[in-house]
Design a binder for these strands. Structure first.
Length: 587
RNA sequence: GCCGUCUUAGCUCAAUUGGCAGAGCAAUUGAUUUGUAAUCAAUAGGUUGUUGGUUCGAUUCCGAUAGACGGCACCA
């Protein structure tokens, strides 16, 4: 048998496993390697190599190493939990982007924050024991017997395809149902930390029991772990909720949970942002409109919101008739479109609106400015002819690039394609999906496809930005709509004098102005670019007795030139006032 | 909405086993007139989120409730 590693060939008379191969090459490699790869498939070091192939070893610096280590750490944690809480039942325990978690049912026991330290200690113990991770393929019947005590594992086993081999991993006295792969032994797991507790529904379904999820993270070196923990601390310092308070941007009150108040500084920021947005859109052939906050129930019945979105709408009575506060701006825009007769020559018609919408979000979903119950969408609704689809999408992608690059934001795009229950012209839909896909490919940004995840009324592109905690938030969106034009019987007159249905595009770039402010607050760490900074210049007279008059004149001049200036005439030393300006992040 | 944690002065935080609620910053007043990242001092500031209970006595223990935070679910 001939095995190729890093371009070199090694010959063997019999089948060998990863350990033997690594040892043949280099003793240090055998100690360091945690797995190997053949044609993108990852194996444990103990796996046999069956035939001629090319092997790549996975070492701590390999990109796959982190998730293998963290997955193994979740097993180590599960072992420790079962040792401390023998009655616990285990759910899922995967590795994730920033570590791993394990979902556990502790029965009647309520796991406390302090218990995490106990579990960590137990993990250390098992780590020192250096228990080998042993993979074993079992039959379904065997698996059901091994995990008889754990209803969650039983449910998983019963759900597995009978043709697929069922693999288990054993370390010490602990055995878990798992596809793998794992590090060779628990002694590889030394530098880890249990981070937090959370509740999570079994299999992500509200109808199921909620298990206790424990998040943790694991590294190959103490230094990496410490750096990661330090980074987590630094992220918290950039949290827009903290900066928003410190810089006087916004506040939240118990009198209106989820309804943010913009403070003087935040209002300047918001106004600067939106007036820039308006200028940009006017320059790009958008007509700016404003539609009412509240409209009658009939409109929402026609739009379909009443049946699909009622739970999230705030309602009230006007003249004994039921009204709803708008959760979206589209019906308003549509009424504007319908207010006139349109010629095919007039299209595309682009209506832009900074629309204040209200949605009754679940209380547990609220989060600073990221998830609120009242927010401003930087919305636009464009009505086009079929033949204008390509150029309109191109126009939009360019616009998104322009706007995001102004802030230097990183993002990725997600394309959601046609679901089963889609409506409208399939050809138009396929064509538009193709156009969207092409546009995504051309853009310099990462994009992924969510097959079948589009709305029933049309495909959509979502623009996702990351916050300082690495959480992903949807900001921009482009949605093609083949539904509302039908529901509202929209039309334009074509060159033959016939009524033709236009295609409608919903789009928002910032998404929610509030969320976007949250994102850029964290992105800039509160130190906004000068054009957005609430206070741009602070004037500090060295000595009030001699310099105050001149400072006042300077402030007046700067104000005249349109700068946002503050005079700091506090009776304090220069150093104190400089420090104040720095803390307030005045450019 | 669900699981968990938290809520003390405007802000950031203390307060042994239940025994007079405390500090720094900010504020106010006074002194200092300052040349590059916190000048000194004094004063004021509180029904400990709200509410019910246990107790001679509750910031502390128990219950209810509101809100925030970390997740989950949700985000047609």
């Amino acid at each position: 048998m001939e095995i190729k590693v890093k371009g070199k060939k090694y010959a063997f008379n019999e089948q060998i496993n990863g350990f033997v191969l690594a040892k043949t090459i280099d003793a240090a490699l055998a100690k360091e390697a945690i797995g190997f790869k053949i044609k993108d498939k990852i194996y444990d070091m103990g796996e046999m190599i069956l035939k001629d192939c090319e092997v790549e070893f996975i070492v701590p610096t390999s990109k796959e190493a982190f998730s293998i280590l963290n997955h193994s750490t979740s097993h180590l944690m599960a072992e420790s939990i079962m040792s401390l809480f023998p009655n616990a039942k285990l759910g899922f325990g995967p590795s994730i982007e920033e570590g791993y978690y394990y979902d556990v049912d502790f029965g009647d026991y309520k796991l406390k924050e302090e218990d995490l330290a106990k579990i960590e200690k137990e993990m250390m113990k098992f780590s020192k024991n250096g228990e080998k991770f042993i993979r074993k393929i079992v039959s379904k019947q065997e698996a059901l017997e091994i995990f008889a005590a754990d209803p969650y594992k039983i449910e998983l086993i019963n759900g597995l395809d009978t043709n697929e081999p069922i693999s288990t991993y054993t370390q010490g006295n602990f055995v878990d149902l798992c596809f793998g792969t794992h590090v060779p032994s628990t002694s590889y797991i030394k530098h880890f930390k249990l981070l937090n507790l959370a509740g999570a529904y079994w299999r992500g379904d509200v109808k199921n029991k909620q298990l206790t999820r424990i998040y943790g993270v694991s590294f190959f070196t103490l230094e990496d772990l410490e750096n990661h923990l330090k980074m987590l601390e630094e992220r918290k310092l950039r949290d827009h909720k903290k900066l928003g308070k410190e810089l006087g941007l916004f506040m939240l009150s118990d009198y209106g949970p989820g309804f943010p108040f913009f403070l003087p500084n935040g209002t300047i920021l918001k106004n600067e942002l939106t007036s820039w947005w308006l200028k940009y859109h006017i320059a790009h052939d958008y007509m700016v409109i404003q539609t009412p906050i509240m409209l009658s129930k009939e409109l929402w019945i026609t739009s379909g919101h009443w049946s699909h979105y009622k739970e999230n709408m705030y309602t009230s009575k006007v003249d004994k008739k039921e009204f709803a506060i708008k959760p979206m701006n589209c019906p308003g825009s549509i009424l504007v479109y319908k207010n006139d007769l349109h010629s095919y020559k007039d299209l595309p018609l682009r209506y832009a609106e900074l629309g204040l919408v209200h949605r009754n979000e679940a209380s547990g979903a609220l989060n600073g400015l990221f998830r609120v119950r009242s927010f401003t969408q930087d919305d636009a609704h464009t009505f086009i002819r079929k033949d204008q689809l390509v150029s309109e999408i191109r126009h939009l992608i360019k616009l998104y690039d322009d706007i995001y690059s102004t802030f230097g934001l990183n993002y990725h795009i997600e394309l959601s394609t046609r679901p089963e229950n889609s409506i409208g012209d399939i050809e138009v839909r396929n064509e538009s999906e193709r156009i969207l896909k092409e546009a995504c490919k051309k853009s310099k940004h990462d994009f992924i496809i969510n097959p079948g995840d589009g709305a029933f009324y049309g495909p959509k592109l979502d623009f996702k930005l990351k916050d300082s905690m690495n959480r992903i938030w949807q900001c921009g969106t482009i949605q093609l709509d083949m539904n509302l034009p039908v529901r509202f019987d929209l039309s334009y007159i074509d060159e033959n004098g016939q009524k033709v249905r236009p295609i409608m595009i919903h789009r928002a770039v910032l998404g929610s102005v509030e969320r976007f402010i949250g994102i850029i607050t964290e992105h800039f760490g509160g130190a906004f670019p000068t054009w957005l900074a609430p206070v741009q210049i602070s004037v500090l007279p060295v000595n009030n007795q001699y310099h105050l008059d001149y400072a006042k004149k300077l402030v007046k001049d700067l104000l005249k030139h349109g700068f946002r200036v503050k005079l700091d005439e506090a009776n304090e030393k220069l150093g104190f006032r400089l420090r104040n300006s720095q803390i307030n992040k005045i450019p």
